[in-house]
Design a protein around this nucleic acid. Structure first.
Length: 258
DNA sequence: ATGGCGGTCATGGACCGA
């Protein structure tokens, strides 16, 4: 089974790219972030034609997350905790993989810049509440996959120029601590777990030829509980969608399980 | 580079992203 995660920076502006990706790479489940549309305007029919059901937690203009899936997802939840700004940043559900029930959690963490503003406070509060609800979920199910746009650069190796990011909301120690704490709960950053020294990115901004120069960062992640390590076949960052016309600034990350 | 580019929308230019 293949699960992909992709911040598409508007599902409607990116519809051709997403359809092309589904046809070429055929994920069983695609976690989408930043769909930037309300449920009613989500292109459900386009995906239905390709055999995908849509589970959408949309919002006008900003944010929004969704699952596209070929397999059944049960117990869809969008209210794991109370979002103080009522933004659509999390959708979760359960799938069955052989004898294991797996809890899938698709997230779009607030960016948090600039620091020293209410945006940064919001990110801190959001992550605090998120970790609390993950801790609770772990008491119910030891099989959890969290994926999405974390807006966290885990370590120096994960950004092209780490010196410049020390006081950035994506790389501040205070923010990276949330990520480390999740690992302490019993999750693996499965990309880094299987690629100890590899320097690859999932995001390149649109400016000044960042993609061509490979000035990027790794901020889209798959965290899986230790229970699921035996089920992992591969984890790959697929750069191809970022190289196509009219791309998202993020590229998909893909997990294969058996 | 308090900008660069690209997305949305009470379509103007503001706001947002990372």
């Amino acid at each position: 089974m293949k699960i992909s995660s992709w911040n598409v920076n508007s599902v409607r502006a990116r519809i051709d790219n997403v359809i092309d990706y589904l046809k070429t790479d055929k994920p069983d489940i695609l976690f989408l972030q930043e769909i930037k549309t309300e449920n009613v305007n989500f292109p459900t029919e386009d995906f239905k034609k390709l055999g995908y059901d849509s589970y959408v937690f949309g919002q006008k203009s900003y944010n929004g997350v969704a699952f596209l899936t070929k397999i059944k997802i049960q117990n869809i939840q969008t209210n794991l905790f109370k979002d103080e700004l009522k933004q659509s940043r999390i959708i979760a559900g359960d799938i069955q993989l052989k004898n294991k029930k797996i809890n899938l959690i698709n997230i779009y963490v607030p960016n948090g810049n600039p620091v020293n503003t209410e945006k940064y406070t919001y990110k801190n509060n959001w992550l605090t509440k998120f970790l609390k609800s993950i801790k609770k979920n772990l008491t119910l199910n030891k099989n959890i996959i969290i994926a999405g746009d974390f807006n966290i650069i885990p370590d120096e190796i994960d950004v092209h120029n780490h010196e410049k990011y020390l006081n950035d909301a994506l790389f501040k120690i205070e923010i990276r601590k949330f990520y480390r704490e999740l690992l302490n709960y019993g999750f693996k950053d499965i990309y880094r777990f299987l690629n100890k020294d590899k320097q690859e990115y999932t995001f390149w901004d649109y400016m000044a030829g960042s993609f061509q120069k490979n000035n990027g960062m790794r901020i889209d992640h798959f965290l899986i509980t230790d229970n699921l390590i035996e089920n992992i076949k591969t984890i790959k960052i697929n750069k191809k969608p970022r190289s196509k016309p009219k791309p998202s600034d993020h590229t998909p990350i893909e997990l294969e399980l058996n």
